[in-house]
Structures are given as C-alpha cells and as structure tokens.
Amino acid sequence: MRLILRNLGFYLLAFWASITLNFVLPRFMPGDPVSRMFAQAQGTMQPDQIAQLRKLFGLDHRPLWEQYLSYVKSVFTGDLGISITRFPTPVSDVIGQQIGWTLLLGGVALVIAAVLGNLLGIVAAWRRGGVLDSAFPPLLIFVGSFPYFWLAMGALYLFGVSLGWFPLRHAYDVGLTPGLNGEFVSNVATHLVLPALTIVLVSIGGWMLGMRNTMIATAAEDYITMAEAKGLSPSRIMFRYAARNALLPSVTNFGMALGFVVGGALLTEVVFAYPGIGYQLLMAVQGLDYPLMQGIFLTITAAVLLANFLVDLVYVRLDPRVRVR
C-alpha cells in the first residue's frame, strides 16, 4: 500500500513536470514561435478568439504566477484550448476523435508482439543452443538496427505499391460510412494489417530476448531441478514452473508498452497516414498548431503514467514479495 501511494505521488509529480514544461516552452523559447503562429492564424480567426489564445500562451501581460495557476486549472478541467489547424474545434475534441484509431492499431500490435515474443523467448531459453536460440537473436538485432520508419516505408513499398496486396493509407476506404457491419470491419482490418505488422516485426525481438534472459535465470533455480527430479513432463516444467515465474518482468514491460501504445505508433501512423493522434501531432507541428501539439503531448504523457500506475496495482496482486516490502 505504501509503495502504491509513493508511486502515485511520483506519477503526479511527473505529470506536473510535463504540464510545467508545456507552460514554459511557448513562453521562453527563442525565435518567438507563438508570434509565427498568430501571423499564420490572423486571417481565419475572430479577434476575441485570438485574445483567448493570447491568454493561453501568456501574451496578456498578467503576472507569471497568475498565468501559471490558470493554466494548471484549465488543464485539469479538460480545457486544452482551440485547435488552429482544425479551427474552431476544441483540442480535446480533436484528440477524442482520433485516439480510438491509435488505441486500435497500438493495442492489436502490442498484444500480438507480446504473446508471440514471449512464447519464442520461452522456447529459445528452454532449448539453449537450438536454432531458435542461436539464429534468432542476431537476426533480430539486425532487423532492430533499421530505423523503424524505414522498415515501414519498405513494407509499404513492397506489399502496398509493388504487390498491391494491402491498401496504402488511411484507416478505411473513402466513401465507406463507419458502422458495425461486415464490410466496414473487414475494410478496417485490411488497412490495419501492414501498420500492425511492421510494429510487431520491430518490437517482437525485445520481448523475446527479455523473456529468454529471465527464463535462463529462472531455469537455474532449485525448484526446477526439483521438478525434474520428480519426473514431471518437460512441457509442464517449462510452462507451469519456469515460464510462470519468468513472466513477471514481462508484465512490467507490457504495462510500460501499454502506455507507449498511445505515443509509440507515431511513426507508423505518419508513414501509413493512419488517422491516429501521432499523425495528428505531426500535422499540428506542420501547421504550427501549438495548442493541439501541447494537448496531444499531455494526453500521451497521461496515458503513460496511468498505464504505469495500473501495472503497479497488478504487480502487488501478482508478486507477494512486493506486498511484504
């Protein structure tokens, strides 16, 4: 319980740090980025809306501490300002519209990569020196050396442009109306294959190596020798005795990865023009849409922190040693 409270305090502190960063960046950066933004937005906005944005970015000549307090307050009440590129939609609405696609893409890729990677890791560790153990790690390191977005470009070129197996961009075909019917769902699924596949390809190695290394340590424990002495079947020892205990670090990694799902699919979304919040973040950067940028950054941070907190809760449940400490 104390551990959870301590961590909760830490997460709140981290969130406060990112809010403060958000507050400080537009105010103290050289080159006056905010003026550039206003110069661009002048034509499309009403004067009172510009006045509101000025307030958001501290151009209203109030003392700094007052600005800071009102900024923190508006963040916690969910008021993240108004998007400039998608004017006049509020930032929170823009994020709400697109976070679903990010969660879908990231979630599917994460579950596949974690399950497959852990299984491969278990087998690799159990058959040390086998094909899986000796050939896979160098191969995975090599694949992992490629910049992620480059692999995604390659996959897009090979399977999308050259072979034409999969659609090139977006989450579903233009002209389809979203709904829970077979046509729409299968269309979304075919659009999902390539982006998800590339994420799985680059992330599976980490899962596998991590699991392999913990399994090797676990396999040296006395209770494994004991289980073998009892004459239990190898598969039972492998899964029920060794893997079950080696899985704990993977739970942590899963939680961390869950948080990064929101931000991690960013490059994928950019390459495949997938309409999630990562893609939106880049659009915001290109359109000098600072309120939207900051809103997305805060959302991603909040997701990461929340996922970490959930892992803490699960961990207390799974590992009795944490409860004692």
Partner: peptide, 11 residues
C-alpha cells in the same frame, strides 16, 4: 517516464 518521441517532437 515521459514519452520520448512526443517529447522530442514538441521540443
């Protein structure tokens, strides 16, 4: 803990 790539982008 702060997400790396979004932080990079925003900076």
């Amino acid at each position: 803990l702060l997400p790396g790539l979004p932080l990079l982008i925003i900076l």
